[in-house]
Simulated scan of single mutants.
Amino acid sequence: MQRSIMFAAAAIAALSLAACSREEAANNPNNPGQSEPVNAAQDAVGAAVGQTSAATLGANTKQGYVMNAAVGDMYEIAAGNMAQQRSKNADVKAFAKMIVTDHTAASNQMKPLAQAAGETPPAEMDQRRKGMIDNLKAASDADFDKVFLTQQVAAHEEALTLHQGYAGNGDEAGLKGHAAKVAPKIQAHLDKAKQLAQGAGAAH
């Protein structure tokens, strides 16, 4: 337990640092978007932080699970909608449509279960996911699919850790059932994202 608390503290510290850096960048009118290598590095750090958060608080507490699942769904819907507009690849567009459909359904299914458990899902994404969306917006047309799919692999690996973890360790029956139901779809999304990422030369 102490180890989990230490991991969680480290994750929170990293998220705070990332949020401060992004706020500074956002307040600088001469820096509308960082360079692509910086954006990619931020996404990689965010992925590591997300895995830690999902494996600790998210997989073991109803509050952590609801928060992580809700913002994860919001990120997927926003990213998927953007990919349907910007990608020139029919397979990527079809994948994006699938994740929007599935994550919208998952979000709608979780809301009453969260409320029954005494939890209120957040109304907007956290700073880390907002940063990922910003980096996706900043990607060039030529690199969009690669950036999108790299993010998708990391995001679905995190989501799989979260849902499988809470399904096994959770303390609230309704949410545990939801986590167990969603996990196979997350696995299918991850498998498809990895397959597409290979063709796009994305990191995974």
Rank of each mutant, 00 (worst) to 15 (best):
Q2W: 01
A9K: 08
A11T: 12
A11I: 06
L15N: 14
S16G: 10
A18E: 15
A18G: 11
S21T: 08
R22F: 00
E24P: 00
A25S: 11
N28M: 07
N31V: 13
G33W: 11
N39E: 06
A40K: 13
A41L: 14
Q42W: 10
G46R: 12
V49K: 07
V49A: 06
G50Y: 02
Q51A: 13
Q51Y: 03
S53G: 03
S53A: 12
T56E: 07
T56A: 05
L57S: 11
N60T: 15
T61Y: 08
K62T: 14
Q63P: 00
G64W: 01
V66E: 03
V66C: 04
V66R: 02
M67N: 01
M67Q: 04
N68F: 03
N68I: 01
G72Q: 10
G72N: 11
Y75I: 03
E76L: 02
E76S: 08
A78Q: 15
A79V: 08
N81M: 12
M82A: 14
Q85A: 15
S87H: 12
K88P: 07
N89A: 11
A90I: 13
V92M: 05
K93S: 15
A94D: 14
F95I: 08
K97N: 14
K97H: 09
K97V: 09
V100E: 09
V100I: 04
T101Q: 15
T104R: 13
A105F: 09
A106S: 13
A106M: 13
S107Y: 13
Q109A: 15
P112N: 01
L113V: 06
L113K: 14
A114W: 09
Q115I: 10
A116C: 02
E119F: 05
T120C: 07
P122I: 02
P122S: 11
P122Y: 01
A123M: 06
E124H: 01
R128E: 03
R129I: 02
G131I: 07
D134E: 15
A138E: 04
S140P: 03
A142Y: 09
D143M: 09
F144N: 12
D145L: 03
K146I: 04
V147M: 15
L149V: 10
Q152V: 08
Q152N: 15
V153Y: 01
V153A: 10
A155C: 10
H156A: 08
A159P: 13
L160A: 09
L160C: 01
L160M: 05
T161R: 00
H163E: 09
Q164H: 02
Y166F: 14
Y166D: 02
A167M: 03
N169G: 00
G170P: 00
G170D: 12
L175C: 10
L175S: 08
L175G: 09
H178R: 03
V182D: 06
A183E: 04
P184W: 05
K185A: 14
I186A: 01
I186W: 02
L190K: 05
L190R: 06
L190D: 02
D191I: 11
A193H: 04
A193P: 00
A193K: 03
K194I: 04
Q195V: 02
A197D: 08
A197L: 04
Q198T: 07
A200I: 03
A202G: 15
